[in-house]
Design a binder for these strands. Structure first.
Length: 486
RNA sequence: CGGGGCGUGGCGCAGUCCGGUAGCGCACCUGCUUUGGGAGCAGGGGGUCCCCAGUUCGAAUCUGGGCGCCCCGACCA
């Protein structure tokens, strides 16, 4: 193989590998505008599959979709103090339109809390109007200093759910419900098992009372904040007069939640499963699950072509997403590399020899240890068993990622020295006790570059909970997970 | 905003030091032969050398100014 066609080594230069693989697999390309990207059909196809799975989960939990406008009056953003402080540096502001200076500037939404709760205020009078459970699929804009394809771009696509409830308990339940939806989605669809928990004060969403997060561990052992669910309390309700009359006749402010995942998940997928040959797309999200490549020799190619069509039709009927790659200007080998680079889970080859023997060559994107790259199997078996093979592939991706996460997690660390040492030795998540003192968090961050990813939720806590803060000062109040993060 | 790198056919680059009117690989087009892991041969098309100004008989190359992009750090899903 020509050296120039190889990817940068993943274990030596992960960042470079990531940039190359995203472009080569045709997920995305740089646009002429700094920091923004074009999501190409292959990348968008994955996002669409993510969307439809998530959308279904949202609907199943009682949510509806709506759409709110891109532009928000600047004054709206400015209403909630912490919110504006959090977003001010990264706002794109429109001051001119229609050839005139605007009376009031608009911001391109960095998130939609303000416009949405101002509208809810119009729609809610009584407790009977609650809860409101709305989601929107939208683009948002945050003027970031430094950008990376999918992980942080100026404009990105996401969903943002915004709910209003009569009680704090109900809003808290909603926050947890969605956190669980995200977690399940990441595991079952992306094969990316996150750690869940509460964000520290310094890391929470600007304007939230508390934020919960799904944190996934990438192959370079950096953490990726992959989805967040916020309990907003009455912060926005008070600023936008989102109030209602309770059952008892009292005027009360509603309780809000907001939650979102973005196209960043595509980046997470790449960094979870990709290898030196390209990306690996989990079957449930793959725009193409099986590619069929005919081997056309100088003999009569008609029978091979016909068989290819037949196999594609049968697999489509079985509900699989199948691609017929009968292009004539490329050799089979070139096609193999192309589809492997794009992460298609399975490839079927059909040649004259297979035809004669009633078999097909089946190649898996990721070859299990000890198995051959290709298996020659009876046609009937391939047709009948492929759905199960895909399912198995899906599960194995999750298992592998989970094992990697756990192997790279270090528990029971009791000092900053030890934390630093663990990180220097390439640890991913490092669990310690923490007193809750923000100064400790700040100092450790300064020294190690690691941040508290989450105050670990119960399920992920260590069997023996830490009793001292890693600073050496005071008792531990929370077990926390540290990591260097994207 | 600081540090580094880079702007030359679609992509990756050489040429720049030492000025003489642009070349290589891949990709693309045509034809023939091929096709079970990135095909071969032959022919062919395509470039305001990032922009502006200057020096010069002559600038991709020298001088000055500007712009853009990427990477590494400070902010963030």
């Amino acid at each position: 193989m020509a050296e120039s066609k190889k990817l940068p080594a993943r274990d030596e230069d992960f960042a470079n590998w990531y940039n190359e693989v995203v472009q080569r697999s045709e997920l995305a390309d740089y646009s002429p505008v700094r920091g923004s990207m074009v999501i190409r059909p292959w990348g968008y196809g994955i996002w669409e599959n993510m969307q439809s799975a998530l959308d279904k989960m949202f609907k199943e939990t009682g949510h509806e979709n709506a759409y709110f406008p891109l532009l928000i009056p600047l004054s709206f953003i400015e209403r909630e103090k912490e919110h504006v402080e959090g977003f001010a540096p990264e706002l794109a502001v429109i001051t001119q339109a229609g050839g005139k200076e605007l009376e009031e500037p608009y911001v391109v939404r960095p998130t939609s809390e303000t416009i949405i709760y101002s509208m809810y205020a119009k729609w809610v009078q009584s407790y009977r109007d609650l809860p409101i459970l709305i989601n929107q699929w939208a683009n948002v804009m945050r003027w970031e200093m430094r950008t990376r394809l999918f992980l942080r771009t100026t404009e990105f696509l996401w969903q943002e759910g915004h709910t209003a409830h009569a009680t704090a308990e109900e809003a808290e339940d909603e926050t947890q419900l969605i956190l669980d939806v995200y977690r399940r989605f990441m595991e079952d669809w992306i094969g990316m098992p996150p750690l869940t928990g509460l964000k520290s004060e310094s890391e929470k969403f600007a304007g939230a009372v508390r934020s919960y997060s799904c944190e996934a561990l990438m192959q370079d052992n950096k953490a990726l904040q992959a989805g967040t669910s916020h309990f907003l309390g009455q912060n926005f309700a008070k600023q936008f007069d989102l109030s209602f009359q309770s059952e008892e006749g009292q005027e009360e402010y509603a309780w809000n939640t907001s939650w979102g995942v973005s196209t960043r998940l595509v980046g997470g997928l790449v960094m979870s499963h990709g290898d030196d040959n390209g990306i690996v797309v989990p079957p449930r999200l793959a725009p193409v699950q099986v590619v069929v490549v005919p081997i056309l020799t100088d003999e009569d190619t008609e029978p091979v072509r016909a068989k290819t069509k037949e196999i594609v039709a049968k697999l489509s009927e079985a509900g699989l997403r199948v691609k017929d790659d009968s292009r004539e200007n490329l050799s089979p080998g070139a096609k193999f590399y192309e589809w492997e680079g794009k992460g298609v889970p399975f490839r079927i080859e059909i040649g004259p020899r297979d035809l004669a023997q009633g078999q097909l060559a089946l190649a898996r994107r990721v070859t299990p240890v000890g198995e051959k790259r290709k298996a020659f199997l009876p046609e009937g078996q391939v047709i009948a068993e492929l759905p199960a093979y895909l399912e198995k592939f899906q599960v194995e991706l999750l298992d592998t990622a989970r094992a990697r996460r756990d192997e790279n997690t270090v528990r029971g660390v009791t000092s900053v020295d030890e934390l630093e040492e663990a990180l220097e030795h390439g640890a991913g998540f490092v669990f310690t006790g923490w007193s809750g003192d923000p100064a400790v968090e700040e100092e450790v961050k300064e020294r190690t570059k690691a941040t508290i990813r989450v105050l670990v939720s119960e399920e992920f806590r260590s069997e023996e909970s830490p009793d001292r803060c890693l600073s050496g000062q005071g008792a531990s109040v929370h077990e926390v997970a540290w990591a260097r993060a994207y």
